[in-house]
Design a protein around this nucleic acid. Structure first.
Length: 421
RNA sequence: GGAGAGGUGUCUGAGUGGUUUAAAGAGCACGCUUGGAAAGCGUGUGUGCGUUGACGCGUACCGGGGGUUCGAAUCCCCCCCUCUCCGCCA
């Protein structure tokens, strides 16, 4: 969330930013709550100061054997006023917090201003489109023929969008996860985390999924838990309500399954692995100082790209414009893989710098050079998500006979298998 | 799921209704002392919010939330977490 003091002092800039985001936010209503709240706090605290003084004197009177009943009655009235003021204050406070929780992050100064995804500039690309001397098949046909997944049975037991991998398909999932985790821990300096796959509402609020995107989340109301939509939630919230005393930056990587209801996407990208309710992902998460977060953002993006380079897959990096930027992000690069049978680019990673937005929501701090507590900057990106990665591997590496060549870096993880036949 | 014991500041640890403004010790920082160090001595050492140009002042915070009271770390209620034992169980 944004600092209320920042909003107070930069109201016009905030309003402009919200317009650029196409976000419908009533900044003035929040400012009004803020000024009401401060007036009430001052009044309540003055009363409390007086009550504390008098209560102390009552203690003395009793000790001296005087009768305090008259003063007690007087303070009792004061207490009633304080109680009702506190109650009112609680309400204003929670309204203000709710208001703040629905205001998205400020786009960074370098984020291009634009209306929607059509305004996202391509930053760079790697490799080139593969040419085929036959018509490349979509991954769902290839996979069904090879028997490496069985979406019908997945749908039978959980519903559509819950993919079921089988045999070498299941092993390929495991191999890719292991390959990516090894790369990030051994070559990029990340510490691996195996976190809980469910989080409470506080954690979901800390990273920005709640309260606004409740409909996108699965939830288990009986226990107040949410199956995680991304490892970002548990791994970022690891340090919630802490003043981190380790040296920054902290780099974490984590494999988790991810669960998304995809509300509002019904009927879109329904075939195969394009858009599913459950998928595997290796995530990269960083905690940095404000001074280093921009450089760490570039490095994090490069770490994700390295996965695709090692796998030999053609990709491009785009930067999200203000109109397409995620709620909590200040700056974001999407990495997209080319899928020849789909004839389109598929997003496999969103690498975001959240600045202090999540840190303020989750209360994650460090001590700055003066020893004063300050909010960290949080960053994350997929490194990378599996379904579309599997699509790209299958569709790009297919042969005319329906077999699929496996990238060389995966051979050791596939027990020496070089080809899916 | 049942029974019990706990949760106090950076740490250890006291505190069961009123100068507690959370004792004491350790740690840490600074200063004195010293040829230098250690020891010793002295001073300081939390977070949020409000207010202020600033120094500061006020307020809240002893796992979390409510309540009783003029006044709560302390009494009452609910919840969370940790440990021990029992039950169940991969």
């Amino acid at each position: 969330m944004l600092d209320i003091r920042f909003i107070r002092e930069n109201a016009e800039a905030v309003k402009t930013a919200m317009r650029n985001r196409n976000a419908d936010v009533d900044v003035d209503a929040v400012l009004e709550l803020d000024s009401r709240r401060r007036a009430m706090v001052t009044e309540a605290e003055e009363l409390k100061a007086e009550r504390n003084r008098i209560s102390k004197s009552i203690g003395l009177m009793i000790k001296e054997g005087k009768d305090p009943e008259e003063i007690k009655a007087q303070v009792r009235e004061m207490g009633d006023r304080i109680s009702s003021l506190d109650e009112e204050l609680r309400q204003v406070d929670s309204k203000l917090r709710d208001g703040l929780l629905f205001i998205p992050n400020m786009p960074s100064a370098t984020t291009p201003v634009g209306k929607d995804e059509t305004a996202n500039p391509v930053v760079r690309s790697w490799g080139e489109k593969k040419t085929f001397d036959f018509t490349p098949k979509p991954h769902w046909d290839l996979g069904a023929d090879l028997g490496i997944f069985d979406f019908e049975r997945g749908a039978k037991i959980a519903g559509s969008g819950f993919p079921l991998f089988k045999g070498r398909g299941a092993k390929l999932e495991r191999a890719l996860i292991q390959f990516m985790l090894d790369l990030h821990t051994e070559e990029h300096g990340y510490t691996e985390i195996a976190p809980p796959f469910m989080c409470n509402a506080t954690a979901m609020t800390g990273t920005g999924q709640l309260p606004k995107f409740a409909e996108d989340m699965y939830n288990v109301p009986l226990d107040g838990l949410y199956p995680i939509p991304t490892a970002e939630v548990p791994v970022t919230n690891m340090y919630g309500n802490e003043i981190i005393d380790q040296e920054l930056p902290i780099l974490h990587t984590a494999y988790t399954p991810c669960f998304r209801r995809e509300a509002g996407s019904a009927g879109k990208d329904t075939r195969g692995l394009l858009r599913v309710h459950q998928f595997d992902k290796v995530e990269l998460v960083k905690f940095t100082t404000p001074e280093t977060s921009e450089a760490e953002h570039e490095k994090l993006t490069a770490d994700a790209e390295r996965v695709l380079q090692k796998l030999g897959l053609h990709y491009r990096v785009i930067e999200l414009c203000t109109g397409d930027l995620g709620f909590s992000a200040s700056k974001c690069y999407d990495i997209e893989l080319w899928a020849p049978a789909q004839d389109k680019w598929l997003e496999v990673s969103s690498c975001s710098n959240f600045k202090d937005y999540q840190a303020r929501r989750a209360n994650i701090r460090y001590r700055d050079e003066n020893g004063k507590p300050a909010f960290v900057h949080t960053l994350n990106g997929s490194g990378v998500a599996l379904p579309r990665l599997v699509i790209a591997i299958m569709e790009n590496n297919q042969n005319a006979d329906g077999s699929i060549d496996l990238p060389e870096v995966l051979w050791p993880y596939m027990g020496g298998l070089k080809k899916l036949v």
